[in-house]
Design a binder for these strands. Sequence first.
RNA 1: GGGCGCGUAGCUCAAUUGGCAGAGCAAGGGACUCUUAAUCCCUAGGUUGAAGGUUCGAUUCCUUCCGCGCUCACCA
Length: 492
Amino acid sequence: MSEQEREARRARLEALRSEGVDPFPATVGAWLPIGELRERYEPMDSESLEAEAQSVAVVGRIMASRSFGKLLFLRIVEAGESIQVSAKKNQLDDATFRFIRDLDVGDFVRFEGNLWRTKTDELTVDATSVRLLSKSLRGLPEKWHGLSDVEIRYRQRYLDLLVNEDARRIAVVRSRTVSAMRRFLDARGFLEVETPVLQPLYGGAAARPFTTCHNTYDQELYLRISDELYLKRLVVGGLDRVYEIGHDFRNEGVSRKHNPEFTMMECYQAYADYRDIMELVESMVRSIAMEVRGTLQIEYDGEKIDLAGAWPRIPLCQAIDEATGVDVLACEDVDSLRAAIRKKKLGPGDSSTWATLVDDLFSDHVEPTLVQPTFITDHPVELSPLAKRSQDDPRLVERFEPFIGAMEIGNAFSELNDPDDQRARMEEQLRSQAEGDEEAHPVDEDFLRALEHGMPPTGGLGMGIDRLVMILADAPNIREVILFPHLRSEIR
RNA sequence: GGGCGCGUAGCUCAAUUGGCAGAGCAAGGGACUCUUAAUCCCUAGGUUGAAGGUUCGAUUCCUUCCGCGCUCACCA
């Protein structure tokens, strides 16, 4: 039973206490990082180590132990680096030897000792003294097969991180991705800002929000679905280049690509348009990939992906035409487009509006093919209430979405700064909301007032950090790149 | 939310047609001074996710519920 091992460990804990040993001491004492130790001593052979005869101190968590009666080998890990520790009965007093022998896998310890090499040439710290740093009361998952139960891996991520190298690797890739992104944006003169998560009105994306309530103000609030409208207010206020990295919350289903709470980077650049932002995305992804992976040729889901160079720019309607033979721009209304879809036998075409039919065609026939980095540009205006109209075709907007690995990793446009057009589009959204579209935006009068004060021509970008990390870490599921992904409550 | 699948010891997995729930690792005891999945001997460890039902008998068949996965819908 699970109790069995825990009782044994508790018994040892009590035994230590009764001997006057603090199982959870406050101080550690000086120690040498294992990584540094390896760097310094790995090149040295047995004789030079012996000649050096210098005592070292290491700390770490015991991950394995093997006993030969009068000789013990332990493996300790600290900061992802590990080293072997030996304890020899004939070189230690009885109490110290017994103390080391009775340590459990999982305990944190500090050893002092001398370096030597075993018969198999392994660099090893031969312990001369030991100090317990923290007692572990539960065993680690199995050492050979490891931990593969997906539910435990997500719920008890600390175990996953301890025993599965890949979990640790992905966490590192994620951290480095975010810091590389910050460095890139900072270097381009962007200012990192923070805007409200709790908002009286939500907007900036097509999604249903989470709702909450402020008790003392008796005020209904929404967890933000995007940062967009606040960041644009800052551009109105003269912060010409701003970005924010934070969580957005969308009250929708979960999938391989969707977590209800996810990390978004949004940036806005005044005096720029969506073409400038395309250049920014190409440069940023290249820069991050070089820092994180050291190469622009990566593999995702078994496909080789080349992040170098300029990415193809394909207008959305053209991409649909090429994939399906349906020229959506030639179909003036819902009915003619639906007729064209049925004529090509591309499915029922049961969405209710022209724009959503276009969206469906794209999702079904184009998106799965966008494995190499690609910009899909010039979306229908109905799908993009916050983007500026295209100069060439008023039915389209200056917008693009970068795709990698058949996954949309961002969304960008020349920001709509005409307050009257913006008002008209928001009111259009209101009408579709009345018709049952639960994801339509409400009208944000405060935002419209800001636009009336004047916003410079601005290019804006939102990028899904989780998905970018999936690409860079070659992770097939968004839950692998989120340390604590959303799961149903364990306790009902 | 729909469909399909899964849930057995701390971990990884077995269990014939419905017929006494088992192994390896981990744990406890013992042997062992060169292991790195150490080896060898012994021991203990289970409400088979939960609750019902069918049956002489259920891990196995049925129903409901809980959780997880895949998938569709939703969703950028």
